[in-house]
Amino acid sequence: MIVVLAIDALEYTLVEEFNCKNLKQRFYGKTNIKEFSEPKTMVLWSSFMTGKNMEKEIVARGDKEMWNTELDMEDTFFRSFKNPKIIDLPGFSYIKEQHEQERRMLKYYFDAQSEEEKKNIRTEYNNLAFLHHRRIKQEFSTALQGDYDFVLGYFSVADVIGHLNFGNGSMMKLIYRDLDEIAGTINHTLIVLSDHGMERVGIFGDHSNYGFWSTDLKDLGNPKITDFADMIKEIPEVN
């Protein structure tokens, strides 16, 4: 089984700062996403699974519609596997209602007038994200026990929580520890990949202009997100 831990907004500098050994594996580094004009989640994951720059195509759908993208298995590298399991990946098996609600609440937060209201919305928003995280964690752990030759788990918690709380160091630290523990439970060939990282704006978080990768296989240097499709296809199936 080959496993991809797809973590939205996993920030290289925080992986270093909190020394997340399981997320780092033997080789790790930053991905190069400079070819994209903006580090947009949907654009980056679509490019990842197709192995080609999908910016134009996704952006053309418009900011609202792009979140509904659902690529065909045949257009992605997943088709090279007999029995792949793809959990919650944007542009493929994205759980739209959940993430739509998150984005809606983000807007409520910024639209809210009083501090009190903002505080309440933040708490509710965080709870929503954490709840979903626990659900995905469960689903992912079940999948690892299953009869799949490829499992991809997409974890959005670092991004969703990060946008409103990136300046809250202990909250981020706890999340990174949790993600690190998840990586530690995987006993298969593992690739950790993020679409982009995150940088701090006061208490908030903005996307940074590089992503994160790690593997035990070999040093990838400063790869592009579109390099992974071919690379993963070529990993010899052990066992």
Binding site: N126, L131, G167, N168, G169, S170, K173, L174, I175, G202
Partner: peptide
């Protein structure tokens, strides 16, 4: 609450991390 949300036990040392960040607020 954060610890509970993640299903973890609370650790006291986090308080200090937390305060450090809180000062920025």
């Amino acid at each position: 609450q954060i610890c509970e949300s993640l299903g973890r036990e609370i650790e006291f040392g986090y308080v200090m991390d937390h305060l450090e960040e809180e000062r920025d607020q």
